[in-house]
């Protein structure tokens, strides 16, 4: 047992303080301390990508980041993607392309797709497949996710 550390971060644009044990992962902190349960636990060892969040502009699997490492960081989770009740074009494209079924992998895929389109607004299909190969889905259809990201990229180019 060890004492808790005070950590200051910005989560989805809001200054957020939390207390966590040094051994707690950012995933656990987000879900159980901050109450943002949209970030999902799939494997807890960095292989499935369900807990993908954006930390200081880079995608990370929150299960492999310690809560204390987030000191001073800007974090975007799935709860911060839509704004003012309006879905982000990526979310909209996932719905229209039926790119989700059970939905557990979906937050991670959407965060990873957002990071891709932030960096490369007009990716090829190959680039999408390569970029998203760190996220695992067990039930829907990766093909539909590729179509969704292509659609979202096109929509975002128009705006």
């Amino acid at each position: 047992m060890s004492g808790k550390t005070h950590v200051q971060t910005t989560i989805n644009g809001e200054h957020t303080d939390f207390l966590c044990e040094p051994r707690q992962s950012l995933l656990e902190v987000l879900r159980d301390v901050v109450g943002l349960t949209g970030t999902k636990e799939g494997c807890n060892d960095g292989n499935c990508g369900a807990c993908t969040v954006i930390l200081d502009g880079r995608i990370v699997t929150a299960c492999l980041v310690l809560g204390v490492e987030a000191e001073g960081a800007e974090i975007t989770t799935i709860e911060g993607i839509a704004s003012g009740g309006i879905l982000h074009p990526i979310q909209q494209a996932f719905l229209e392309n039926a790119a989700l079924q059970c939905g557990v992998c979906t937050p991670g895929f959407i965060l990873a797709s957002k990071a891709l389109l932030d960096e490369n607004p007009n990716p090829t299909e190959h680039e999408i497949r390569f970029w998203l190969a760190n996220n695992l889905c067990r039930c829907t259809g990766y093909d539909k996710i590729v179509r969704a990201v292509l659609d979202a990229a096109a929509t975002m180019q128009e705006v």
Partner: peptide, 12 residues
Amino acid sequence: ARHDGPPKATGA
């Protein structure tokens, strides 16, 4: 499109 899509795609 599925009605349960928005809550799943927003983390709700």
